[in-house]
Simulated assay, not measured.
Amino acid sequence: MTFLLAAEEGNLLPVSSVIFPLVAAGFFALMGGVTWSYRDVAHRHANKTGGSQPSGSDH
């Protein structure tokens, strides 16, 4: 009986249901930007790992 009463009240969410996917998309975009910002970090610090050449290189 309580479920039926709650269903009749309508939207009980604190914000519109459109906001939740937008927040999720923004969060994933933010995390993608953080991940993208770390690209090529190993090559930037190659002098600390013994050089930029692979170990099997003839050069």
Rank of each mutant, 00 (worst) to 15 (best):
G10N: 11
G10Q: 09
G10R: 02
N11I: 10
N11T: 01
N11E: 01
N11L: 09
L12Q: 14
L12C: 13
L12N: 14
L12H: 14
L12M: 14
L12V: 14
L12G: 15
L12S: 14
L12I: 13
L13Q: 05
L13A: 09
P14T: 04
P14C: 07
P14K: 07
V15H: 06
V15Y: 12
V15C: 09
V15S: 05
S16A: 11
S16M: 01
S16N: 03
S17C: 06
S17G: 12
S17E: 13
S17T: 12
S17M: 06
V18F: 08
V18N: 08
V18S: 13
V18P: 00
V18L: 10
I19Y: 05
I19S: 05
I19E: 05
F20M: 07
F20C: 12
F20K: 10
F20V: 10
P21W: 00
P21L: 02
P21A: 01
P21M: 03
P21G: 07
P21N: 07
L22Y: 04
L22H: 05
L22A: 00
V23F: 09
V23R: 12
V23D: 06
V23M: 04
A24I: 14
A24F: 13
A24Y: 00
A25L: 03
A25N: 07
A25V: 11
A25M: 01
G26K: 04
G26S: 11
G26L: 13
G26Y: 08
G26N: 12
F27M: 10
F27N: 04
F28Y: 04
F28H: 02
F28Q: 05
A29K: 04
A29H: 06
A29P: 14
M31N: 08
M31C: 02
M31Y: 11
G32T: 03
G32R: 01
G32E: 06
G32F: 10
G33Q: 02
G33R: 05
G33H: 10
G33F: 11
V34R: 09
V34H: 04
V34S: 00
V34D: 03
T35F: 10
T35W: 10
T35S: 05
T35V: 09
W36I: 15
W36S: 15
S37F: 02
Y38T: 08
Y38F: 05
Y38A: 10
Y38C: 12
Y38N: 13
Y38Q: 13
R39I: 01
R39W: 06
R39M: 00
R39G: 08
D40C: 08
D40Y: 07
D40H: 15
D40K: 15
D40S: 15
V41Q: 09
V41D: 02
V41C: 02
V41S: 04
A42I: 03
A42S: 13
A42N: 05
A42E: 06
H43N: 14
R44H: 15
R44Y: 15
R44V: 13
R44M: 15
R44W: 14
R44C: 13
